[in-house]
Structure formats: C-alpha cells, structure tokens
Design a protein around this nucleic acid. Structure first.
Lengths: 194, 194
DNA sequence: GAGGTAAGTATGCGGTGTAAACATGAAATC
DNA sequence: GATTTCATGTTTACACCGCATACTTACCTC
C-alpha cells in the first residue's frame, strides 16, 4: 500500500466522491467547493492542493461520470448477439444513464471542452465505443464518411432525447421505454442502408 | 403611448435586453443580477420589483430566445414548397440558431421547467411548429403515436447535434452544413415511411 | 536530528443572491 | 388642488461563494 496521504488520506478521491454524492442528493450540478470541503471535514482551501481551480475539480468529476457511462455501454455491447441489437442497447443505456444521473449528465456536457483531441478523455472513449458499434452495423465497404455521419446521427438522437427529457420538454407518455424505442429504432435502421 | 414608466422606463425590458447583450458578449449563460443592474444604471435590488428572483429573470430571457427561435423556424416554413423541404430547413434553422447564440441556447434548456402544460411558453410553440411540419410529411392516416415519435425523433436529432457541437464534442469536419445534412436527411426520410 | 517538501490551515478580498426597511414620485381620490 | 395610495427604486445588511497569499504541520530523506 502506498502512503495514502498524511493528513487526510487521499483527499482528491474524497472530494470527487463528495461531489458525486451532492449531485445525487440535490439532482443539481452546481456545487460549492466550500461545501465539499465541509463534508469531507477539511478547510475550504484544501481542495486547491489537488485541483487548480473549481473547474478542474468539476472536470475530474465529469470524467468519472463518463467512465461510468462507458461501463454501461460496454455492458450493453457484451449482452447482445447481433450488431443492431448491440447499438440499440447502447442507446438505451445512454438514455438510462442520463435519466438516472441527471446532474452528472449535465456536468459532463456543461462546459465546452477545449483541446480534446490532444488529450482524449472518457467522453471520447464513449464516442469510440459507439462508433465501433455503428461501424459493425454498416455493410462492408461503406465509406468512412457515411459511418461518421451515422455515428453522430445516432449519438445526436440519444443525446438530444436525454437532454429534452431532463429539461422537462417531454411529456410523460414520451418517456416510456417503448416510446424511446420508437424514437431510436428507425434511426438505427438507417445505419445498414446503402 | 402608455406611460412607459416613471423612474426608469420599462426596467423589465431593459434588464432582459441587458442579459441578452451580456450573453452575446461573453458567450456564456451565467450572468449576474448585480451586473445587469449596473449596466442598466439601477440599484442592485431594483430587479426584484419585476422578477421574483434570478431564475424568474432567466426564464423571461429564455422565453425571448424561444421567440426568436420560433421566428427562424417560421421563416424556414414559409421559404419552401414541399413538406420534406420545410422540415429540413426547420432543422437547419434550429441548429443555426444554437450555433449563432450558444449562450442563449444553453439558457433555454438549462433548468428543468415545471408545470409546462399548464402554461405553455414559446418553447412549446416551437415544438408545435415542428410537430405540424412533421405531420405534413406523414402519409394520410398515420396514427398519432407515430407522428409523435417522429416529431421527437427529429427534435432529438437536431437538439442533440446542437448540444454536442456546443459542448465541443464534434470535430470541425462534422460541423459543416453538408455533414449536418448527412446527419439529418436520413432521419427526415423515416418520417414518410409506413 | 536537520532540512526539505507535500498537504492542510488561516485570513482576507471582492463578488454574489436576496431579505428588510425605507424613500420617492405618479396617479387616484376627495 | 391637497391628500392618500401604491408601484417603483434605494439602502443596508447578511450569508455565501471562489480564490490569492501567507502560515503551519507532518512526513521523508540524509
């Protein structure tokens, strides 16, 4: 075992966990550094030994969220036999994650992230998963551009649906699993078309 | 002409306009009541004579944004001959608005809006426009549920695409008008399918 | 043991949203 | 025309926030 820290013992992880907890409690993504410090039992300025500023902390929290999302998507990948079923279940998992963790989902896509291709995060990993699953649906020899458009088409649908649901723009009857399938499936069918 | 106010002269509208201006300047949707008051030349507490709290002001600003969005969508509606072309142009207008006014777009879908069907806003008006255009594409006798799903499918695509673009999750080559069409058109084609 | 250094603390500054009490001036009543 | 009313704007105050700066602590190395 490493030293695990002196005063507190891995404050960094504790802060991230506290942030996650607050967001689950309040269903809101705006949290306060001071509050996190209070919960962890540390002085208000302690967080700055581990994060450059508040945004850096939020970024770390968001990246953890993307990691969890990736897990859900990978589970969907492993659970199905056909490429189309895999893509469908990945879409369902995406929406399910958003609705289960609205504040986290909000945070993950909150600030425009810069220099992303320089240092890819778990968000790009999630995108890669989706892209692979979509490519597996496309007929052999499909041009790369088509696959890219299809990937973003599908991502846009599930992402947009999630956002609209979280924003309260969908009525209850539009948020059932069956309705979601009605929204997604025709888009998935466009994937294997010439 | 009505009285136009005593002390200031329609402070309410001035605050909303100031908010809009700040958001255009900073490309960010987090603004400060005190800053708005400062810009309008009024004391920090003056805004509370016209808005219950900050959120109420933001809601009013957002509703103005939806109004502008509706104008863009109506223009697209009027500019084309066929139902499919109308829907396509509405989608383009939606994305164009989001990219032209990122902060406003952010604000419009920021907080989950409650009791929406009780008092519809310009957001529901925008949705109604889209729904009508989609219905016009559907074969006669298409069940209502299909139309609803198709509407939300299309809305989800354009909304999700806009969000991903604003979040910096799309590479430059995925943000050209041609690429956007590649994303949207196949979804529009699902509208007139049985 | 003496230093060095990473981790946490104390203090303080300028900013925020908003509650409460007060001031002002246009308009309505007499 | 004087008086009352009431919407509008101001003042003051409070609790909170992110963060800069300077300090202290506790471990590790030599």
């Amino acid at each position: 075992m490493k030293s695990e820290g002196f005063h507190h013992g891995n404050l960094r992880a504790a802060l991230i966990e506290a942030a996650r907890a607050v967001m689950e409690e309040t269903s809101s993504s705006d949290l306060s550094l001071r509050d996190l410090a209070r919960r962890v039992g540390v002085s208000p300025m302690a967080a700055y030994r581990h994060f450059a500023d508040k945004e850096a902390l939020l970024r770390a929290v968001a990246d953890g969220g993307f990691g969890e999302l990736v897990l859900g998507m990978e589970a969907a990948l492993a659970a199905d036999a056909t490429p189309l079923a895999r893509v469908l279940d990945m879409g369902r998992a995406y929406v399910a994650f958003a609705r289960a963790h609205p504040a986290m989902f909000d945070l993950m896509f909150a600030a425009p992230v810069a220099g992303l291709e320089a240092s890819p995060d778990n968000g790009t990993k999630a995108f890669g998963l989706l892209q692979g699953a979509v490519a597996a649906c496309s007929p052999a020899g499909t041009p790369q551009g088509k696959v890219a458009a299809a990937t973003i088409r599908l991502w846009s649908v599930v992402h947009g649906y999630s956002r609209l649901a979280l924003a309260g723009r969908l009525v209850a009857s539009s948020m059932t699993p069956a309705f979601l399938d009605e929204v997604i499936v025709p888009v998935i069918e466009t994937l294997e078309r010439p």
